[in-house]
Amino acid sequence: MAMTQFRARALLLTPAGLWYAALLLLPLAVVLIFSFGERSAIGGYAPGFTLEQYANLPARFAAFRNTMTLAPLGTVASLLIAYPLAYFLAVRVSPKWKTMLLVLVIVPFWTSILIRSYAWIFLLGGKGIPALLAQIGLDDVRLLNTPFAVLVGIVYGYLPLMVFPIYVALEKLDKRLLEAAADLGTPPWRAFLQITLPLSMPGVLTGSMLVFILLMGEFLIPAILGGGKVFFVGNALVDLFLQSRNWAFGSAVAVALVVIMLITVALYTRAVKRFGASRDDVGLM
C-alpha cells in the first residue's frame, strides 16, 4: 500500500523533477563546474580545479557595489511610487474604471523593455526634460547617462511588478477592518498605518523581492540609460562571457550573484513569516 503510494507519487513528480533538473539544476551545475576552471589562452573555458576565480572576485567589487546600491535604491523608489498607485487602484477607483486602469498599468509591459528604455533617452536627453528646465532658468542639467537616469529607467521598467502584488494584497484586504478601526477611534491616516500597511506587507515584500532579484541581474537599463558608465554585475557578466570570454571567472561571478540572491530570498522568507498575519495571507513566491 505504502509502496504503491510511493510509486504513484514518484511517477507524478517525475515530469516536474525532470524539468527542474534540466532547466535549473543542470545549468547551475555547469556554471558551478566552470567557476572552478580556467580561462583558456584564447578565451573560453579550460578545465581545471582552482579557486583562483573566486579569489579574483574582488576585481568585480565595484560592479557588486553598484548593483547592491542601485538595486535596493531602485526597489525602494519603485515601492514608493507603486504603493500609492496600487492603493489608488485597489481602494479608491470605482470598479467601473478598475479593469481599464489595471490594463493601462500592464500595457507598457507588452512593449520590450528595450524600446521603453530608449524612449527615456529622448526624455532625459538634451532636448527632453533638460530643455524644459532650461526654459525656467536651470541651464545645462545633465540627466542622461547618470545613475539617476538608470534609477528612473529601473523604476519605470519594474513598476508593474511592484504594483501588482501590492494591488492584490490591498484588494484582498477586508474593508470592514478599516471600519472596525474607525469604530474603535482611529482616524483614517492612522488606520492606514496600523491596519492597511501591515496587512499589505506580504504584497510589499513579494513585489520588492521580484524587483530586487531581477534588478540584481539587470544589465540592459544601465547599459542604455547609464551610457555604459554605470556598471552592474549583469554588465560584468555580459562582458566576461561575450567580450573577454573569461567563462571561468564569469561563472564565479555568476555563482557569487546567485549566492547573494539566495541569501536575499532567505531573508525575504523570514520576513514574510513575521508579517504573515494569518496563514492564508502569506504571499510566498
Binding site: 576585481a59 556598471f231 560584468a236 567580450q243 573577454s244
Partner: peptide, 8 residues
Amino acid sequence: ELMARFKS
C-alpha cells in the same frame, strides 16, 4: 580586465 575596471 583593464576595460572592466574602467567601466566600473
